[in-house]
C-alpha cells in the first residue's frame, strides 16, 4: 500500500467516530439544542458497548446498548432544556461531568473478577476491516473499501443526512425550528416534539461514535478513550456550518492530521511526541478561529438563530 493510500485509510478510520457525533450534534443544533454533553455521551457509549460486547459476544447487541444509552442521556438533556427550560450550557456540561465520571466508574467495576473488576486491558469482539480481496490492493479505492462496518456506515449516513435536511419536508421543518421556533410553531410544526426527537437522535449517533472507538478504532476500554473528541465535535459542527454534507471535511482534517502525526511518530522524528499529539487539536482551533472570522465578514451564514434558547409559546 502506498503512503497516500495508507494515510487515507488511517484518516477515514480516525474520522469515523467524529462524523457520527458531528452529524448527530448538527441535527440537535439545527433544532436549536446545544448539547455540550457529547464528551460524556461518547464515553458512556464506548464503555457500555464494550462491556456488552465482552460479556455477550454480540456486536449487534453492543450497538443497540450504545444507542439506548446515548438516547437516554440525550433525553435527560432534552427534558432539562426543552421542558424545564434550563440553561443548555449548564445542563450539557453536567451531562459531560456525569458521563465522564460514570463511564470511568463502570470501567473499574464492570470487569471480571479475574481482572480485578477492571474493564481496562481486556479484549472483546470487534468490528474488523472488511477484506475486499483484490480490490484492497487498488490505490485509494482500497483505502476506502478496506474499512470496518462503522466506516461503511458514514458513507451512507453523510449523503442521507444531507438529503434529509435539504430536500425533504421534515428537513425543512427542522431548519425552520432552529432558525425561528415561533414561526415554525405558528406554521403548524410540532416544535417541542421535534426538538426532543432530534436531541435524542443526536445523542444516539454520538454514542455510536463512542462505540466505534471501543469496538473498532482502538478496541477495548481505556480511561478517556475519546481523548476529548466530544469537544472537538462541538467545533466541527461549527466548522461544517451546520451542514451534514460538510461534516466529513472537519472529520477528515482532524483525522488526517492525526494520521500524519502517527506516521511521523512511527518514523522516529525528532519532534517531541507531545507536540505531535497536540497537532490535531491545535489545527482544529486554528480552523475554528479562521471560520469565525470569515463568518463575521459574511453575515448570512451562521449558527441556527435560536441555538441554545428555550422556546416558550406564550412568552409575550
Amino acid at each position: 500500500m502506498g503512503l497516500i493510500t495508507s494515510l487515507i485509510a488511517i484518516t477515514l478510520r480516525a474520522g469515523t467516530s467524529l462524523v457520527y457525533a458531528t452529524i448527530g450534534e448538527t441535527y440537535a443544533e439545527r433544532a436549536g439544542i446545544l448539547n455540550l454533553g457529547l464528551e460524556g455521551i461518547m464515553l458512556m457509549g464506548a464503555v457500555s458497548s464494550f462491556a456488552t460486547a465482552y460479556y455477550t459476544g454480540s456486536l449487534g447487541l453492543a450497538i443497540v446498548v450504545a444507542l439506548g444509552v446515548g438516547g437516554l442521556m440525550a433525553l435527560i438533556h432534552a427534558f432539562l432544556s426543552i421542558t424545564m427550560k434550563a440553561n443548555q450550557v449548564v445542563s450539557g456540561l453536567s451531562i459531560t461531568l456525569f458521563g465522564t465520571g460514570f463511564a470511568s466508574f463502570l470501567g473499574q467495576r464492570l470487569g471480571p473478577e479475574s481482572n480485578g473488576r477492571y474493564l481496562i486491558g481486556l479484549t472483546g469482539p470487534r468490528f474488523a476491516p472488511i477484506d475486499v480481496g483484490a480490490l484492497g490492493k487498488v490505490p485509494i479505492l482500497g483505502a476506502i473499501l478496506g474499512q470496518d462496518l462503522f466506516t461503511y456506515g458514514i458513507y451512507l449516513l453523510i449523503p442521507l443526512a444531507w438529503f434529509y435536511l435539504y430536500r425533504t419536508k421534515n428537513g425543512l421543518w427542522l431548519r425552520a425550528i432552529g432558525e425561528n421556533p415561533r414561526t415554525a410553531d405558528a406554521m403548524g410544526v410540532a416544535v417541542d416534539r421535534a426538538k426532543y426527537g432530534y436531541t435524542v437522535f443526536g445523542g444516539m449517533l454520538t454514542a455510536l461514535g463512542g462505540a466505534h472507538l471501543a469496538l473498532a478504532y482502538t478496541p477495548g476500554w481505556s480511561e478517556n478513550i475519546t481523548g476529548g473528541r466530544g469537544w472537538i465535535v462541538i467545533a466541527l459542527v461549527i466548522f461544517s456550518m451546520w451542514n451534514p454534507g460538510r461534516a466529513i471535511t472537519g472529520a477528515l482534517i482532524f483525522g488526517g492530521i492525526n494520521a500524519v502525526q502517527f506516521r511521523l511518530q512511527a518514523s522516529g522524528t525528532n519532534v517531541p511526541a507531545a507536540f505531535l499529539n497536540m497537532l490535531p487539536y491545535l489545527a482544529t482551533i486554528v480552523v475554528l478561529v479562521a471560520i469565525t472570522w470569515w463568518e463575521a465578514l459574511s453575515k448570512r451564514v451562521g449558527s441556527p438563530a435560536s441555538l441554545g434558547q428555550p422556546y416558550v409559546r406564550e412568552d409575550k
Binding site: K169, A176, T183, M187
Partner: peptide, 27 residues
Amino acid sequence: HQNFMLIDTMTVAENVVLGMPSLPFVP
C-alpha cells in the same frame, strides 16, 4: 402576524410551504 412569521434565511417558496402537513416527504 404583526411581526412576520417568516424565516429570513429561507426562500419564499420554502416559507410558503412551511408546516403544511399535506406536503409530500420529498417535495
